[in-house]
């Protein structure tokens, strides 16, 4: 059966848009500028699906062989 959304696929981890406050907190925590963040293209299928805009920070929750679950952040560009 064809999947309707990419996020339904088993290999696509959970993507969420970070709120303004959370994003500020994150930037402050790591002391980074936006240039130093890992990036994700704005035409990435997941980005399009959750409707993130350029400049949004995505919170990605992945499964990790070492830590069980791991949170990663990427900025839409």
């Amino acid at each position: 059966m064809a999947l309707e959304k990419v996020s339904q696929h088993i290999l696509v981890p959970k993507h969420e848009i970070l709120s303004k406050e959370e994003a500020d907190k994150l930037v402050k925590k790591y002391g980074i500028s936006i240039d130093n963040m890992p990036k994700i293209k704005k035409d990435d299928p997941v980005v399009e699906e959750i409707g993130a805009k350029k400049g949004d920070i995505l919170k990605i929750t992945r499964k990790s062989p070492t830590a069980g679950e791991f949170v990663y952040y990427r900025i839409v560009e």
Partner: peptide, 19 residues
């Protein structure tokens, strides 16, 4: 801060080895 970064301080991993 246990982040893995490149020479120009771009973040590769937010926590070394994820754990």
């Amino acid at each position: 801060d246990l982040t893995v970064r490149t020479a120009s301080k771009d973040i590769v991993q937010f926590l070394y080895g994820e754990d």
